[in-house]
Amino acid sequence: MRNCQCINPLKPYPATIIKIIDETPDVKSFQMVFDNPAVMENFRQKPGQVAQLSVFGVGEATISITSSPTRRGILEFSVKKVGMLTSALHRLEVGSKVGIRGPYGNHFPYEVMKGKDLLFIGGGIGLAPLRSLIDFVLAEENRGDYGKVEIIYGARSMDDLCFKYDILDRWPQMPGTTVYTTIDRAELGWEGHVGFVPAYLEEINPSPENKYAITCGPPIMIKFVLQALEKMGFADDQVITTLEMKMKCGIGKCGRCNIGSKYVCLDGPVFYLSQLKRLPPEF
């Protein structure tokens, strides 16, 4: 159950930003390395887990780890500027010091998914948590364990597409991988699909056979994606999502991320749809 190896789970380890990628006008990806190499070596996250990022003097926020565990030596976080902490992160530069503690939470059931086809459906910054699993599955050492990979990803506009390098270049070239990209409204220079993610999903109409669907995005998108998947015949146990809640401690004590008696920071953030349906609608 416990993932974090720290002696004091509330005290972060110092880390340094080594690279910043401007993904969209309000999303940046930060590559970070712990200052202590032993901490870096011992930090063993699983796809879908989260960490608490500190900007000292401002505070902490829970951010999903977007890099795959197969990529050793760095941690990557994609952060949308929405609040106080994320704005502070956006003001940082390469070389800036931060704090990281974690990893926290459960992870995508990558063991259970072995031998299955995977359908990823993401919207906006919601691709960030999915990306850790996508890259995990597509990594050379794991690729043989999984079947076909389909990725449906959409954003409001071309500008708002995160991880352009992955979705437009890298992933489409991977064996057994198909990427479908869409933007909400047509715009000059975009030759791809136009329309909302749930509608595009229905258009593509993937078969539920031997497949897991993993989705994350804005609440409204998730709502319609879940409806579409149900229509296509996906069972509740084949659908997986990851939730975002306000968290402070990350270790099941501060009491704010509960949905019923489950804490998203301990029992989530990854849930099967079948589990979500048994929880009160407070997320």
């Binding site: 509330l10 000292f56 003097g57 505070g59 402070k248 401690c249 704010r256």
Partner: peptide, 21 residues
Amino acid sequence: CFDIFDFAPDGERGVRSRCWD
């Protein structure tokens, strides 16, 4: 229930505390 917050009046040196919420 508690909250966690930083207090750093000079921006460089500070304390991270928690308090009831």
